[in-house]
């Protein structure tokens, strides 16, 4: 089993970011991993650097050029240059997928922008209380789990790690509940045929697999830490989500998908709100988001969309927006 990590730059790929990512992956100490990078993302200096890296790397013009051994099984994940793998991530993926080969494994993640400590506290608190109490009583009798170091908390997360098997319509429900899910959290099975027919860096590939297979898996504890997408990437992602919507004929799935798409709109609005763009540029992007919002059935649409994007409105802005029917 091999894992293919496709690097998708969040902004501009730099030597430094690449180096960090490679070190991060190499630290996994798992030889069943390869890095995939598109040539268009890198310069000559990087190519030279990559050729001496300790990791197997494929630099390709197109994803269809990726070389795969037809006798092996491959799993693909798209990571941004400022994402990283948590300790033992690949081993955990391998452990799950060896035990339960499935077409997709959805990953839980930490957010790079927020405190890891706080996020881990939350996850540990939310975990199965019997397991948590066991770990507390067996190994940390004299200290509260929330007072442990981050390293210790990550170690505890291994003991709390579970995977969820989602079959039939459960996988659609899962999608609708995964408000923060994005492309960088999904590991999916691929082969030469997949790479020929689909673009593995696009969400539509994952969607196609999800529709075609009865089952997906999801990991409960984080194995990756991901960064917020830059606004342009986020808009591309949103576009992929809505493009994918057109291909869904299953009514059960479509309902869940609408919820998922609405959540992606909310995420986009948040990123837009926090971006440093000027008001008029924000407005242009907001108009695009509003168009996406209009594609959803009425009950799923986000209300007060402008307020969410722009923050507190002035009376003047209010008047302008009300003229537009918003």
């Amino acid at each position: 089993m091999q894992f293919l990590i496709n690097v998708l730059p969040n902004n501009h790929l730099t030597n430094h970011k690449l180096k960090l990512l490679i070190e991060n992956i190499a630290y996994q100490n798992n030889s069943n991993v390869q890095l995939i990078i598109k040539k268009s993302f890198i310069n000559h200096e990087m190519i030279d650097f990559l050729s001496h890296a300790s990791l197997k790397i494929q630099i390709v013009n197109h994803y269809s050029d990726v070389s795969l051994d037809k006798d092996d099984s491959y799993y693909w994940i798209n990571l941004k240059d400022n994402d990283c793998l948590l300790p033992s991530a690949i081993d955990q993926w391998q452990s799950v997928l060896c035990r339960h080969p499935s077409s997709e494994l959805w990953l839980h993640s930490l957010k790079n922008e927020k405190s890891f400590n706080q996020q881990m506290n939350y996850l540990i608190k939310k975990a199965d209380h019997a397991k948590r109490n066991t770990i507390q009583n067996l190994f940390y009798q004299h200290v509260q789990l929330k007072d442990l170091s981050l390293k210790q908390k990550l170690a505890i997360s291994f003991g709390l790690q579970e995977y969820n098997i989602l079959k039939d319509t459960d996988r659609f429900d899962f999608l609708s509940q995964s408000a923060d899910m994005n492309l960088n959290q999904i590991l999916f099975k691929c082969n030469l045929n997949t790479l020929q027919k689909f673009d593995p860096s696009k969400f539509t590939t994952i969607l196609h697999l999800m529709l075609d297979h009865q089952e997906i898996l999801s990991l409960q504890m984080p194995t990756v830490a991901i960064s917020l997408m830059k606004l342009n990437r986020q808009m591309e992602w949103l576009n992929q989500v809505f493009t994918g919507m057109r291909d869904i004929g299953d009514a059960n799935f479509l309902g869940s998908y609408h919820v998922f798409a609405a959540n992606q709109i909310k995420n986009s609005l948040l990123i837009l709100r926090n971006s440093k763009l000027n008001r008029s540029k924000k407005r242009k992007i907001l108009d695009r988001i509003i168009q996406y919002n209009q594609k959803l059935p009425y009950i799923f649409r986000i209300k007060n969309i402008s307020k969410m994007a722009m923050g507190r409105l002035t009376r003047f802005s209010n008047q302008l927006l009300s003229k537009k029917g918003l």
């Binding site: 081993d91 790690q161 995977y163």
Partner: peptide
């Protein structure tokens, strides 16, 4: 049951 325990081997 929906959740399955992840097993860690010696190498991991």
């Amino acid at each position: 049951p929906v959740n399955r325990q992840l097993k860690f081997n010696s190498k991991m």
